[in-house]
Design a protein around this nucleic acid. Structure first.
Lengths: 201, 201
DNA sequence: GATAAAAATGACAACCCTGTCACATGACAG
DNA sequence: CTGTCATGTGACAGGGTTGTCATTTTTATC
């Protein structure tokens, strides 16, 4: 966590440092991000930086925390999804709201993307923790099974794992090509195939 | 490509360098691999290395080439897959033969894995080139559609993309946890779901 | 204004890395 | 045995990184 000295800083200075960190972390993976770049871009001295943060990991955690806080807004918006919508519709809606977020905050989104492109132990641990709350979907599938809308023999875990993998892969592609339409198409098509494979008819 | 000087080297020396490179590239992503480590581990001087290879990229390409040559054997074994087997069975068999290869050559396999964990331009280009020949499966799906074993409205591309994404994701997980059984389970289950979604009944 | 506490600074040490090059050592031919 | 050519070597320059710390500057308080 940042030092108390940092907390006491003027808002605009804190923001300058945060922005510089976001800039660096959205262009380089954690391992390759350079504190030198950050301090230069933020317009502070090297010594100051180390008075605010213990090291690069500390800074990274701070940035992630701030982003998570801002993300709350999105999460809140996600909550008022039609509770009567079925699993597939719910997934679709959540997917779209994540996509909207990615497009409205491309730098934040790139940071999360770059987490997948780093093999340091630190980031690996983070990946596991922040893995996203896919548990929600697992429970939703179980409910649908009880309601008879999904075949009862279906393993909810594997469906969630599939969606997770597809989500990650399609988003990564989108990150490079930048075609929103293709991303949405892929999501729709793959979801329909899965639906065909597990829905009770 | 390696210099002629390198080609003229004694076999055991060439092998020592190759092994050292494999060791380094299977433990660090390309960007983080160090030539210093390689020369030390191979027991040659820094100066010699640069007499053999232009730079790290050159060495990497050499290693990849050698691995590809050895991989031919696997590819050959793959060819005598039952031509009458359906798409899903063929996929299963190919999957298993890749898994076998990964288990017999874990260091080679880790190198290919680490290619996905690198964001350098050089590796990005390679990823696109060596993307694997999934075209084979696309054609197989088209054939199955004609034979009436797969729904004609199915988009072969999306199925291939799904399999590719799942393959990558499951293998990555396997790489970290190392559970072969789980990997095979996941492949079987997800393939069955896709089958349910696209097969003509 | 004087004093004390807080914050900012950048030179520095220590450690990585790469690519080069003048020189040393080997091997082989005459 | 000597000269030539192929090969091996490691010190070196030039670049990067991180984390520290003695010193200066700013800010707040009396």
């Amino acid at each position: 966590m940042p030092s108390e000295t940092f907390e006491r800083l003027a808002e605009n200075k804190k923001k300058a440092i945060f922005d510089a960190a976001v800039e660096e972390f959205s262009n380089h993976s954690f391992s390759q991000a350079s504190i030198n770049q950050v301090v230069q871009s933020a317009g502070i001295s090297r010594g100051s930086f180390y008075q605010y943060f213990r090291d690069k990991e500390d800074l990274y955690m701070y940035v992630l925390g701030e982003i998570a806080r801002e993300k709350m807004t999105v999460a809140a918006a996600t909550r008022d999804i039609n509770p009567h919508a079925d699993f597939f519709e719910t997934y679709r809606q959540m997917f779209m709201s994540i996509l909207d977020w990615a497009e409205s905050q491309p730098r934040y989104y790139r940071i999360s993307m770059l987490m997948d492109y780093d093999d340091s132990a630190f980031i690996a641990k983070l990946r596991d923790q922040f893995g996203g709350n896919w548990d929600f979907f697992r429970q939703l599938i179980e409910k649908e099974k009880q309601r008879g809308r999904i075949e009862p023999h279906v393993d909810a875990d594997i469906v969630v794992e599939m969606l997770f993998a597809l989500n990650k892969s399609f988003f990564q592609d989108y990150w490079q090509t930048g075609s929103r339409d293709q991303l949405v198409d892929r999501m729709e098509s793959s979801l329909n195939i899965i639906k065909g494979g597990i829905a009770r008819v």
